[in-house]
Write a protein that binds this DNA or RNA. Structure first.
Lengths: 345, 345
DNA sequence: GTGAAAGCGCTAACAC
DNA sequence: GTGTTAGCGCTTTCAC
């Protein structure tokens, strides 16, 4: 119960009646230690629950393995894990390990991880930043001060930093243009969660596409239904229950693929056929979009490339002995036409 | 080009003509430093690309944030990320952060991460072990010697350790029994990748179910098609092309849900209807199984609970001042009946 | 405002 | 085989 004094190698040595060097030898499996001394020490280590501190062990060599980290916003969404895989590929090729952390869209959590990474000598970080209303970026400035290398996966106002991202506005515009070209006139956008920067950018892209066409935009075309599966599912049902069949849109541009899948599931359950009654377009092109039994038309982000590029820039920064100029890479997206959309007659 | 001598606070201090203490003060944003000294130091830090070592900074306080790690076998499979989410939930409740690493089914990679974790004072690890032919468990013994706490997500012969797992044999048995009860007589198992311990256990469960029924097992019922989507897809097509329609099985028990989804996609493409022509059962119950347009009957593993429990045992071990007895938790699975299976007439 | 010195927990020479 | 000693790169206290 009482807060036991933190065990150290010295404490073990004292109790074993030997010197620290001997305990150290046991810890490092040197074969020079007398078996009986060895056993005694090993036993002491167990019973006193002594755990050598890693940082102290590696102080001499100065290093404990090259590794970089990535902070994603959500762990269980393939979009992010695929980016991480890309980062991992590049990192491996340069002898770095990759560790992953998730902020779960929580700004404090993101900050905690940036602290953790720099404290543990993770050499640099790729960060998918949580952008809140008044985006707190203190923690990024702190990294700056420590000269800690990082790459962002979205542009943040107020800080000049390396960024690797996609052109969200253009992505959604492409989707809308495709629909218009295929004679759709009643198009809506199911928007994402407010705490994601992508949400706003995608709404903007949707609006832009209208202003460049003969159609007129009105804000009822933006229906915020979130991206959580259950929530989007329920909101979709609610949306269609509240409308007459003749007022249904002919096409929906979804915030992302996870949402799109939930929407399609909801449509199935209220007996609306995709793409016969309504066309659906997703965003991201996660793996499951393709194998869904109505394969989803979607806008592909080059997830793997994003991860690779981010890792490349990061490791460049880590290894360069001199200052490296800031990079801002914007990847373009690609409209992948599958079975969830059709041309209107 | 020439390997620059590793920068230290002392080096910066020397070049700035001040003492280490002053540089330290700048680094830690103390307000006691003369602005001009401060600027000079900051500038030097940038141009010399000096990065203070985290381990040295935290040596005094002894700690750099409580955190545990999990090593999964694959990052992009929801089964693992959901376990990680469970672990994260529990960890958070105890004030620990969670970091994730993926071994990608590679034993060396797993070993590298266990080293990394202990070197960086990640307080403990949850490990989904890669079990190869002659399972190398040296690295686990090394952790033992350092008294490093860990929990395994599968039992490994040759080492007594904390384990949280599911009863794979029983899981598959349930599936087969359910099919038999529903009049299926031609049942096969699409097996997983050889490097996964689950593969063998699930085959065993499949065989067991037969031996307890009136049906006879023969080894042609086991078709190894892997769990990678593309590979499983192609193997499925190949399998059915090589058979006459009358020799088709009436039901397939799949290795896991990802494979099952690939199999269903392949069946769609060769125009075999699920469940009319063939019933499909998956394994794991990942999120996408439910929203697939033919919702997948599957065997649910309590992924979140597995993660939570593993984290609980781990943190118990970390925090206990005394030796904690080893735990071995085996979770049961649940057959979730959806639309991909049917009773035979 | 700034510097000198002690010390964090461990490893690695080298002496005994 | 085992102990002594000198660091590793930083922070911190306390003088100045």
């Amino acid at each position: 119960m009482s807060k036991t004094k933190e065990m150290t190698i010295g404490e073990i040595a004292k109790r074993a009646g030997v010197s620290k060097a001997t305990v150290s030898a046991v810890l490092n499996e040197k074969r020079t230690v007398n078996p009986s001394t060895r056993e005694k020490i090993l036993h002491l280590i167990k019973t006193l629950n002594y755990r050598p501190k890693g940082f102290a062990r590696n102080m001499k060599t100065g290093d404990a393995g090259k590794c970089i980290g990535i902070i994603v916003k959500e762990l269980n969404y393939p979009f992010f894990t695929t980016i991480a895989e890309g980062a991992k590929e590049y990192a491996s090729s340069k002898g770095y390990s990759l560790i992953i952390a998730s902020s779960d869209y929580n700004h404090l959590s993101e900050e905690k991880f940036t602290n953790l990474f720099s404290a543990k000598d993770v050499r640099g970080a790729i960060i998918a930043p949580v952008v809140e209303g008044n985006s707190e970026i203190e923690h990024l400035f702190k990294l700056r001060k420590l000269n800690y290398p990082f790459v962002l996966l979205a542009d943040i106002k107020g800080i000049a930093a390396n960024v690797v991202e996609i052109d969200n506005k253009r992505a959604v515009k492409k989707a809308v243009e495709y629909l218009i070209k295929n004679e759709h006139r009643k198009i809506v956008h199911f928007a994402g969660p407010p705490e994601s920067a992508h949400t706003k950018e995608r709404i903007d892209g949707f609006r832009d596409a209208f202003s460049e066409s003969t159609l007129v935009f009105n804000k009822e075309m933006i229906i915020p239904i979130g991206s959580n599966t259950r929530v989007s599912y329920e909101n979709t049902i609610k949306y269609f229950k509240s409308k007459n069949r003749k007022d249904y849109p002919t096409a929906i541009v979804c915030f992302n693929d996870l949402q799109a899948l939930a929407v399609m599931t909801a449509l199935r359950d209220v007996n609306i056929k995709v793409p016969k009654d309504i066309s659906i377009i997703g965003n991201d092109d996660i793996h499951y979009a393709e194998i869904y039994s109505v394969p989803l038309t979607t806008i592909r982000s080059p997830q793997r490339e994003i991860g690779q590029k981010a890792a490349e820039i990061l490791i460049n920064n880590i290894e360069s002995p001199t200052l490296v100029p800031i990079e801002h890479i914007v990847y373009d997206t690609e409209l992948i036409i599958r079975k969830s959309t059709r041309r209107l007659d």
